[in-house]
Amino acid sequence: MSLVINKNLIESEDIWSIDLEGDVDINTSNKLKEEINSLLDEREANVELNFKELSYIDSTGLGVLISILKRVKKNENKIVVKNSKKNVFKLFKITGLDKVFELK
């Protein structure tokens, strides 16, 4: 499956709001990394990832999220992950990333 990325800067809250739809895997993770890094090049801000329509994420996708988290933290910003489906939330729990990312 493919990955659709919808993004919006909420200037008043200094947040990039990013909705992901589809799968983040070895075939799409580079697209996600390039897209988010491009947004952060444009403006360093907090990142809010909406996983409501995200069906699947693999270890490659998790690696991308970790690299983005490192960049965001350097600028004292944060990443919030919201609306994860059960299978995605379970992966965050199993890997211990539920303690690294703010999940809502």
Rank of each mutant, 00 (worst) to 15 (best):
V81Y: 00
L32K: 07
K7W: 04
I26N: 05
S17E: 10
V88L: 10
I26C: 03
L62D: 01
N37R: 09
K74L: 12
D58A: 11
G63F: 06
D58H: 11
E34S: 08
E76C: 02
S55R: 13
N27L: 05
D41M: 11
I18R: 02
K52C: 00
S55E: 15
K90S: 14
G63I: 05
Y56H: 14
E42I: 09
G96H: 07
I15K: 10
I18V: 15
L20I: 11
N30H: 09
E34D: 13
V47P: 00
I79V: 14
V80P: 00
T28Y: 04
D58R: 08
E21G: 00
K74V: 03
K82L: 08
G63Q: 07
T95L: 08
E11W: 01
T95P: 06
T28F: 08
K90A: 12
K73Q: 12
L54S: 08
F89S: 15
E44C: 00
I5A: 10
D98T: 08
I36H: 01
I26D: 02
L65Y: 06
K104A: 04
E53R: 13
M1R: 05
K78H: 08
G61T: 12
L49F: 15
L39M: 09
L62R: 05
N6S: 09
K85P: 00
I5L: 10
T28S: 14
F51M: 15
E44K: 14
D19G: 11
D23G: 02
K31G: 01
N27F: 11
L91F: 11
D14V: 05
L97E: 02
T60K: 06
T95Y: 07
D58K: 10
T95D: 07
I10T: 08
N27A: 10
L9F: 15
L97G: 04
E34C: 03
E42T: 12
K93T: 12
Y56S: 13
L3I: 05
V47G: 00
E76T: 03
V72K: 11
I15S: 01
N83E: 13
N27T: 05
V64K: 04
K7F: 05
K99V: 00
I15W: 07
I15F: 12
F92D: 02
I36S: 01
D25C: 03
L54Y: 02
V88F: 08
L65P: 07
K86S: 13
T28W: 07
D25Q: 05
I5M: 08
N37Y: 12
K85R: 15
L69N: 13
E44A: 03
N27C: 03
V81N: 01
N30I: 09
E35H: 10
I79P: 02
G96R: 06
I36G: 00
K31A: 09
V80D: 01
K99F: 01
T60A: 11
V88G: 08
S29N: 11
K52I: 08
K74D: 12
L39V: 09
L49Q: 03
G96Y: 04
D23Y: 09
S55F: 03
I94C: 07
